[in-house]
Design a protein around this nucleic acid. Structure first.
Length: 567
RNA sequence: UGGGAGGUCGUCUAAUGGUAAGACUGCAGACUCUGGAUCUGCGUAUCGGGGUUCGAGUCCCUGCCUCCCAGCCA
């Protein structure tokens, strides 16, 4: 047994530019010593590992500096948002360890205030009602290199604007008929400043405000003010909002309200996966996966079902760090932290995924012995358990080769190996069917090696796992591989989209697995290490008498590497 | 092409003008009743070119490359 040199979760992460900013603000007393962040998801999809990074950053800094972090739903677009998403997000943030201490807010909580602020800007001559259609607005916005043209409605009187905006709110106009726009600068090199739209008409039912409103604020007109209302100090978001910061600043300045600071960091990318809610939605809607929580999905709910732990995800996020460099993190790093965590906490068990029948010819018929097995070599307090041993067993098909290749140490004719916690056995015979496939093997055992050690000190090169046939519990096991076959699923062949890169073998279901009897009591969510195979978690599809396991991640497999190299 | 942001080992991140560091990956070995875990060792990087300086990844100039922006999405 060894103590891994695991970095405790409380260990200080390497510093980063955001921490430097916070430290500096604390030093200069910019916000009276406060640190108050927020995690602001839009409830239009499930959270994924990229959000976990943001959650880690926002809740992490709050915790580190004795501050607060709010959970706020950015629900300004009624047509895309649903309560199903709200519920899943709340569950996921909580599961990841985010504690908003009751400060659960919605941008829609501020619709009344936002409306008043819009009126304030109209009164100040900083906003106007524009009658241009969406197409016309686009045409007049100009391009990256050419300035836009001013709207013919730009110079309406304050009274007319007030009247029109009031009537927009009252529902007098159809969707898209008019917008409220900020009067900034149609020639700005920053497209966001070319008279951005503040309000649009949307006769849609909102998941919280119902039919109360038919005009809804745009993200830009809601986010900064929401931060302001909540007293946020550091409004941390991803890089694509950098161009929006001048607008964020413009609104709070024009309104004369408390001014939080927006800080942008790099979005997380991970190889072999997609982290775009739009694309994940597509996978769900087109049936490429079974749902948002399919264990192959990079969603928090998918990872949870797969067997990931919040601790592993947090460790990963901490190690990935925070910067402004666009990059892609290797999936292997996530899996490393997963194994590291599971190795410490998952009880061991023996399970045979692809059974091969073994008869021990010299073992007494009808005899059953209880062998003592260690539950977790990394955790003595996990104790031991009994595993029944008998004449007929199952071993893994992979653990027998009639014609063993070089460096293959497992069972083969004439060779002796150890059955873990059992006996030394030697293969004495092979039974095949008419097609030549091995259906059963015969062995002899050495009674003197009970428990797994030979009194004469002789060694075996290999130890394999087994399950007593008479005592085995049947189960279904689902093996997962990457959902995509290439590191960057977005690199699709000409004319095709990312679904062209879907891995046809991302799910393999094994229906005839044999587990040691102790596993009969496994409950959904329980995690185990199946010795020599990997970590497995009980799927919610399980029912009493019908166990279903998901392979969370395989163990590191040195032999597989050797075998692959020799080919 | 306009604006914004970035370029440090294969990957992610540090070094805040003073010996380019860590983790993951890779390779080699030790140990092992899991070919797991653990342990040991090895390897690879400052985008290019100028300049300032005793000293530059860091400051200045210049070139190159990458990402983001033309939703009434967020």
């Amino acid at each position: 047994m060894n103590t891994p040199k695991t970095e405790p979760e409380t260990a200080p992460a390497p510093s980063n530019f955001i921490r430097e900013i916070i430290l500096d603000d604390l030093k200069t007393n910019k916000y009276g010593g406060r640190v108050h962040t927020r995690f602001p998801p839009e409830p239009n999809g499930y959270l994924h590992i990229g959000h976990a990074k943001s959650i880690n950053i926002n809740f992490g800094f709050a915790k580190e500096f004795g501050g607060k972090c709010n959970l706020r739903f950015d629900d300004t677009n009624p047509s895309k948002e649903e309560t199903e998403y709200v519920d899943s997000i709340i569950e996921d943030v909580h599961w990841l360890g985010g504690d908003w201490e009751g400060r659960l807010f919605y941008a829609s909580d501020y619709f009344e205030q936002l409306y008043e602020w819009a009126v304030q800007l109209i009164r100040a001559g900083k906003a106007y009602v524009c009658d241009l259609s969406a197409d016309e607005v686009r045409q007049q916005r100009g391009t990256l290199t050419e300035p836009g043209r001013e709207s013919p409605y730009r110079n309406r009187s304050v009274e007319e604007n007030l009247n029109l905006f009031e009537r927009m709110k009252a529902g007098e106009f159809p969707d898209g008929a008019r917008t409220l726009r900020a009067k900034i600068d149609m020639a700005s090199a920053n497209l966001n400043l070319r008279d951005p739209i503040m309000y649009r008409i949307l006769h849609a039912e909102h998941h919280r405000t119902g039919g109360k409103w038919c005009i809804y604020p745009m993200y830009d007109f809601a986010h900064g003010q929401s931060d302001s209302i909540e007293g946020i100090t550091h409004s941390i978001c991803t890089l694509e909002f950098e161009d929006h910061r001048p607008l964020y600043d413009w609104y709070v300045e024009q309104l004369g309200i408390y001014h939080p600071q927006q800080i942008e960091f790099d979005r997380l990318n991970v190889t072999y996966t997609l982290l775009s809610k739009r694309k994940l939605l597509q996978l769900v809607q087109q049936g490429h996966v079974s749902g948002w929580n399919d264990p192959r999905m990079p969603t928090i709910s998918g990872l949870r079902r797969r067997g990931y732990t919040p601790e592993a995800i947090r460790s990963f996020c901490r190690r990935v760090g925070v910067s402004k460099t666009n990059g892609t993190t290797e999936l292997g790093l996530l899996e490393y932290f997963l194994r590291e965590d599971l190795n410490k906490r998952a009880p061991r068990a023996m399970a045979v995924l692809r059974p091969l029948r073994v008869v021990i010819d010299n073992y007494p018929e009808g005899q059953v012995e209880q062998m003592e097995a260690v539950n977790n070599p990394e955790d003595e307090s996990a104790g031991t358990r009994s595993v029944p041993f008998s004449k007929v067993l199952y071993i893994e098909q992979d653990d027998f080769r009639e014609d063993p290749p070089k460096q293959y140490f497992r069972l083969s004719p004439g060779r002796e190996v150890r059955l873990r916690y059992g006996y030394f056995v030697t293969c004495t015979g092979v039974v095949k069917d008419s097609s030549g496939a091995v259906t059963e093997i015969h062995c002899s055992y050495d009674p003197a090696t009970r428990g797994g050690n030979a009194p004469d000190g002789r060694k075996v090169k290999s130890t394999i796992h087994w399950v007593s046939a008479a005592h085995a519990v049947n189960a279904e096991v689902r093996l997962y591989d990457n959902l995509f076959t290439c590191e960057d699923p977005n690199q699709a062949p000409e004319g095709q989209d990312f679904t062209a890169n879907l891995n046809p073998n991302s799910l393999e279901t094994l229906g005839d697995c044999k587990l040691e009897p102790a596993l009969a009591a496994a409950a959904p969510g329980n995690r185990y290490q199946f010795e020599r195979l990997g970590y497995f978690a009980v799927d919610p599809d399980s029912a009493p008498g019908k166990l279903v396991f998901n392979r969370t991640v395989a163990l590191r497999d040195t032999w597989a590497k050797i075998e692959k190299k020799s080919k």
